[in-house]
Simulated assay, not measured.
Amino acid sequence: MAKLANKVALVTGGARGIGRHYALALAAEGARVMIADIADGAPVVAEIAAKGGSAASATCDVSDEAQVKALVADTVTRFGRIDILVNNAALYATLAPRNFNEWDVEVWDKVMAINVRGPYLMVRHVSPHMIAQKSGKIVNIASGTAYKGTPRMLPYVVSKGAMLAFTRSLSRELGAHGIAVNTLSPGYILSDTGLGNTQHVEEEREKVRNTRAFKRDGYPEDLTGALLFLCSADSDFVTGQSLVVDGGSVNN
């Protein structure tokens, strides 16, 4: 039997980039998937349906509480429950690297609104459903940058460091309800959205590759095994943890 048969997964930022791969992987293991994004998720829904899976999509800005509430209500109406929440939506690919004192306050606040407030709002409105059923898996997406202190991306790195603390604290509060809260921390991954920003590629690709124990680029497919572990019964006694998937870069 598929690992996630009869489960319902809600994936934010699931219409493109790494999030698309998360949604496809969850569906391939039997989950019914709600894809939430500011971009159109219909193509991913069609991909999942073509492979015999079940999915739906909704437009949602995770920094807007009214939209988050509507998304959660829509998911429960469509699928009856929510077993898995993947907090993947984040502002990253469109950010141009710059020195710490060159970030406009407006950009800083936007990063924090999407990357920190967004996951909080998702958990705030999804958790009552998980508490009622006394089970759930929450996976917050952080980044290896939070461990390494990557320069010239300060607001992004700070926001991902916040996800590590968010997971640790939240796991203590939700553990009594049978809900696991963990973090998946990818290294620098060559996704379609990441490759769209040539400045990121020029500044990071070779430099990061040289810090890895495995001297190769990372791709979205390298992350899905870890995601499925954190979303399935295989990790039922794992909570409050961060799993770094970066080819051994953080070890250096």
Rank of each mutant, 00 (worst) to 15 (best):
I138G: 11
T150I: 09
M1F: 02
C231E: 05
N210E: 06
E65R: 15
G17S: 08
F237E: 03
G13Q: 07
Q241N: 13
Y188L: 15
L95K: 13
A46F: 02
I114D: 04
G14T: 00
A213Q: 03
H125P: 03
L195M: 14
T183Q: 14
Q199C: 06
A90S: 14
D37T: 04
A23W: 04
I84P: 00
S135D: 09
S235R: 12
V44G: 13
G196N: 10
L243F: 12
C231V: 01
H125K: 10
G194M: 03
T145C: 15
T150H: 08
E47K: 14
L95Y: 06
F100G: 07
R205W: 11
I179M: 02
P119E: 01
F237G: 02
T12R: 04
K148L: 15
A213K: 01
S143L: 06
S232V: 00
L174G: 01
H125M: 11
R172E: 15
K134M: 05
N99C: 14
H129V: 11
I179Q: 07
N87F: 12
G30A: 09
M112D: 10
V181D: 08
N99Y: 04
G247Y: 04
F214D: 01
G194C: 12
A56P: 05
G247D: 05
V111D: 04
T211N: 14
G136K: 11
K215G: 02
A142P: 11
D236K: 13
V245R: 12
V238F: 01
G194V: 15
P128L: 11
P119V: 06
K7Q: 13
G218S: 05
H129I: 01
V105P: 03
Y22W: 06
E106C: 05
G52K: 02
S171I: 13
S57T: 02
A36Q: 14
I179G: 06
S191L: 08
F166K: 05
D222Y: 02
E65H: 13
D74H: 14
P220W: 02
V72P: 12
R216N: 05
K3H: 01
V107P: 05
N210H: 00
F214V: 09
P155Y: 02
